[in-house]
Design a protein around this nucleic acid. Structure first.
Lengths: 229, 229
DNA sequence: GCAAAAGTGTTCAGATTACACCCATGG
DNA sequence: CCATGGGTGTAATCTGAACACTTTTGC
């Protein structure tokens, strides 16, 4: 391809958005529009040209799709499209965003647990939520991006500050534990989990409880402030 | 800068080469030639244009400097030049290479411990070895690349297969331990270190010893083959 | 024999795991 | 009263850290 006037892209920003609905991790996928990859899906992506930061470009890609935008994006390790020739070589910069699909909980609320489903954006959607454990065939190198993300969340997320991004501002031990069980892909022992998480000092109790059915009310927690005074 | 004919670079490959001389970690630095950053130093780097992979570009950058080329290059997390405007926005792809500056050891050898110094490449060198603990002011975002590398080696390198790249093909427990102490920046207890490293099954003994002065001869080891049959 | 690095096992503390019972609520 | 998830402490096990002495060599 000889297109000397159009500058080569400085790179492509790829965004992986993960949402937690209380029992599953879901990711935002968009149908691939390119001729060579019809029928495949992909993560939202956009050129970095015209943006000062790849993170900006990543948010713009979500904006254009009408997809949800998580409050924070974490830069991932870079990946390259393998096997591409020098002419159309593309550097892709990955980003990871976490968000919750659980309803925000207010004081004295009697919110029902969130029902799954209805996560798409219409009939012929430009994006949809897809459980990370059952993603369809992905275009380009996005499968390996997903693989990277899978390892990242398993190894970096648990017991970290960022795992709280999967939950509402106020949450219960049960929700926190289910988030961890989903991320880790295994069951956890209730007392051990709480003991271990308490050591992190990442959460603090509120003087509120959450009543979600015919059960004993659950203490609500919130993320602890950044640095204790 | 308006240069519509010359395509924007698809990215820049930055290479951090770390060498271990038996007591220090050294890195390859080149003097910055750009007008705005004279007097500063930088890591070797080169445009990715014309290469199919960033790793190729990284090796080419070393080649052009006449700098040593480590046998393997590990892609690092990508970084961006912060604060750059969209027009000259550059995506840089980092690479990390490890190599040994210790002499290769043959059977029945009586090699003296390697003396430090004389690591540069001439009078007005195009590159030089510099202890990672005393790097001068670096150009562009290379300081943060170095910071990333520092964390990487402290957290990823110890007790891994890759740490053997800092040593010759045959090495002693003492050398392996000193490599770890240098990387970790702290002293290690001899027996605990050996016990822990043996669990990795990364090394195997050879029927040779190494005599390095008025000391008891040391058993030589070599990296274990990839997968045991 | 003396200096210097090599080599080797055991003990202790802290962390992780496993495990069983009572509580509060809605229906 | 019963089903359901919330809530709590203790004993056993495993892992990582600390620690002292003997061996071999060159000088």
């Amino acid at each position: 391809m000889e297109t000397p006037v159009a500058p080569t892209s400085a790179g492509v920003a790829v965004v992986v958005v993960l949402g937690f609905d209380g029992s599953d991790l879901l990711t935002v996928l968009a149908p691939s529009r390119e001729a060579t990859t019809t029928g495949l899906w992909r993560f939202p992506e956009g050129s970095i040209d015209g943006h000062t930061h790849a993170t900006e470009a990543a948010y713009a890609a979500l904006e254009q799709l009408g997809a949800p935008k998580p409050p924070h994006l974490e830069p991932l390790s870079s990946t390259e499209s393998p096997g591409s020739n020098p002419a159309d070589h593309v550097v892709s910069l990955g980003h990871l965003g976490l968000m919750t699909l659980l309803p925000q909980i207010g004081p004295r609320s009697y919110v029902q647990p969130n029902a799954a489903g209805a996560y798409t954006s219409g009939q012929n959607p430009r994006w949809r939520w897809q459980p990370v454990d059952s993603v369809p065939l992905l275009a380009k190198n996005h499968a390996r991006v997903l693989e990277y993300v899978r390892t990242w969340i398993r190894t970096q997320l648990p017991y970290s500050k960022r795992c709280l991004e999967l939950l509402p501002n106020r949450f219960t031990w049960g929700q926190l534990q289910r988030a961890h069980e989903t991320v880790l892909g295994c069951e956890l022992e209730k007392r051990n989990f709480r003991k271990r998480f308490q050591h992190t000092d990442l959460i603090r109790p509120r003087n509120e409880v959450y009543i979600a059915g015919a059960h004993r009310p659950a203490q609500l927690f919130e993320p602890a402030p950044a640095s204790p005074s």
